[in-house]
């Protein structure tokens, strides 16, 4: 009798330990195949499935109005330990749904929803700005590269003048200053997230002023930056995901937003029972931000790694607004 009881107890225990964690994810309206946020998030889900043996379901809404429906359907099934919203335009829907399903844990990436059952994961944007800014400053003084001119000037183009983009720009400027080699930086805004033509125009005007490394932190408008660099053969830097495939000879590096890692972090917190409805600011330390190697020379990478360690250690201070940059 006792034996049976013990066996049962062990069985129950085992089931508890290996109880499947179910996660649902609602992608942004671009859907899978966007080579950006959604694809990266999916990558994170797959990694989590491999490493933590979770099960997941996903939804691809085709319109903003559908976010709420999908979130509600997932929440209503009471089957999921965590429901993840990808993309900042889900904030309205998630605010409502998280109030309605107060028992359900949610996570949102790249946006803040202030409810006790929502974990908001945002990024220390200035950190990746710093990395690519520093890389730019180290590159522009190189010689013997046709893509590099004599002027010691680099540039950054923002999508819109909003705090998030300004944090990137501030980081970029700080990175340039940190190189301390006489390189100057300039910046401007497209004022639109999806206007590659204007992005290109601004890039070309920077190029004419002498800038030979330009970072586009401007959503789809950033495609114009890469396009311009390909046309005039100088360096550009991509954003969020690895955009090297767009111009393999011109994309120097990318200011990476590692949504895949972030998704994995969010899931890990739930598995570890550490879920908290608060704002998480992630950066280089968590590998949520970073840079990709692409065309970066060995020596530059070495410098970047040193700086990265210093940032993680808190030895370099990076302001989040342009005004604070010295």
């Amino acid at each position: 009798m006792k034996k049976v009881f013990v066996t049962m107890l062990i069985l129950v225990f085992t089931v508890c330990v290996f109880a499947e964690v179910n996660v649902a994810i609602v992608f942004a309206t671009g859907g899978l195949g966007d080579k950006s946020f959604n694809d990266a998030a999916m990558e994170g889900m797959k990694m989590a499935k491999e490493q933590y043996a979770i099960e997941y379901d996903f939804a691809e809404p085709s319109a903003i109005t559908e976010y709420e429906t999908y979130l509600a359907q997932f929440a209503n099934s009471k089957k999921y330990d965590l429901i993840i919203s990808i993309g900042f335009d889900q904030a309205d829907a998630l605010t409502k749904i998280s109030e309605r399903f107060a028992e359900q844990n949610f996570a949102i990436i790249d946006m803040v929803v202030m409810n006790p059952n929502v974990a908001s994961y945002v990024f220390k944007e200035q950190e990746r700005g710093f990395m690519v800014g520093y890389a730019s400053a180290l590159m522009t003084i190189k010689t013997g590269d046709v893509r590099i001119n004599e002027d010691k000037l680099v540039g950054v183009i923002g999508g819109m003048k909003i705090p998030l983009i300004d944090a990137n720009i501030a980081g970029f400027m700080t990175g340039v200053n940190y190189a301390d080699n006489g390189v100057k930086s300039i910046h401007s805004y497209v004022n639109h997230w999806a206007d590659p033509a204007k992005g290109k125009e601004l890039t070309l005007s920077m190029y004419e002023q002498g800038a030979d490394v330009v970072w586009g932190a401007a959503g789809r408008s950033g495609l114009g930056v890469i396009n311009a660099s390909k046309e005039k053969n100088f360096y550009s830097i991509g954003a969020d995901s690895d955009q090297g495939y767009l111009a393999p000879e011109n994309v120097l590096t990318n200011g990476m937003k590692r949504v895949d890692n972030t998704v994995k972090i969010a899931i890990k917190d739930v598995i570890d029972g550490k879920f908290e409805g608060k704002i998480y600011s992630l950066g280089l330390k968590e590998d949520a931000l970073g840079y990709s190697l692409n065309l970066l020379p060995e020596d530059v990478i070495a410098e970047l790694e040193i700086a990265k360690k210093k940032i993680i250690a808190g030895e370099i201070e990076i302001p989040a607004t342009i005004e604070e940059v010295k």
Binding site: T29, S62, A63, I64, T65, D89, D92
Partner: peptide, 16 residues
């Protein structure tokens, strides 16, 4: 009616 009933604001590209 979408603005007044569903979205409660105007958002670009709201329509599928």
């Amino acid at each position: 009616t979408i603005v007044m009933g569903v979205l409660h604001r105007f958002i670009t590209n709201f329509s599928p």
